[in-house]
Amino acid sequence: EEERTFTNEEEARKAKKEAEKRGLRVTVTKDGTTWRVRIG
């Protein structure tokens, strides 16, 4: 499991799409101005 943080919503969405392409489970949460993308 890996967690990545982004300040840019577009980049967070891109990371989510890429992980889904690899067949991984992805959770995206917004924490104030930060987007957290949890993969795995």
Rank of each mutant, 00 (worst) to 15 (best):
K30P: 03
E11V: 02
L24Y: 10
G23P: 00
G32P: 00
E20I: 07
W35Y: 06
R4V: 11
E18M: 08
K17T: 11
G32V: 02
W35K: 12
E10C: 14
G32R: 02
T5V: 14
K16R: 08
T27D: 04
K16L: 11
G23I: 00
E20V: 04
K30G: 06
G40R: 10
N8F: 03
G40N: 11
V28S: 00
T29E: 09
E1V: 14
T29L: 09
A15G: 01
T29W: 13
E1R: 08
W35H: 13
T7N: 11
K30L: 09
E10T: 08
G32S: 03
T33R: 07
F6M: 02
G23Q: 02
E3L: 09
A19K: 02
I39H: 02
R25N: 08
G40Y: 15
R4I: 14
E20Q: 07
R4H: 14
T7K: 07
V37W: 00
N8W: 03
R13T: 12
V28H: 00
R38Y: 10
K30Y: 15
K16C: 15
T34K: 12
K30H: 12
R36W: 08
L24D: 03
K17F: 12
V26M: 02
E18F: 05
G40S: 14
K21T: 09
K21L: 12
V37F: 02
V28Q: 00
V37M: 05
G23N: 03
E1T: 12
K16P: 01
G23S: 02
E3R: 03
A12R: 00
A15F: 15
A19P: 00
K30I: 07
R22F: 05
E3Q: 04
R38F: 11
V37T: 01
G32D: 05
T29S: 07
E9L: 11
K14M: 11
A19R: 01
T34G: 11
I39F: 07
E10D: 12
T5M: 10
E20A: 04
E3N: 06
V26F: 01
R4T: 08
E11W: 04
V26Q: 00
G40E: 14
E10I: 10
E1D: 11
E20S: 03
R4M: 15
N8Q: 05
A15M: 07
T34S: 12
T27Y: 08
G32L: 02
G40Q: 14
T5K: 05
R13H: 14
E20P: 00
R25M: 09
T29C: 09
E3V: 12
T7Y: 11
K14R: 11
R36Q: 05
E3I: 14
T7F: 10
F6Q: 01
T33S: 12
A15K: 03
E20C: 09
T34P: 00
E9I: 10
R36S: 04
A12F: 06
T34I: 14
E18A: 08
E9W: 15
R36L: 13
V26L: 02
E10R: 11
V28W: 02
K17Y: 13
T5N: 06
G32K: 03
G40T: 14
E2K: 08
T33E: 15
E2W: 15
N8E: 06
R36H: 11
R4K: 10
R25P: 08
E9H: 06
T34F: 14
L24A: 05
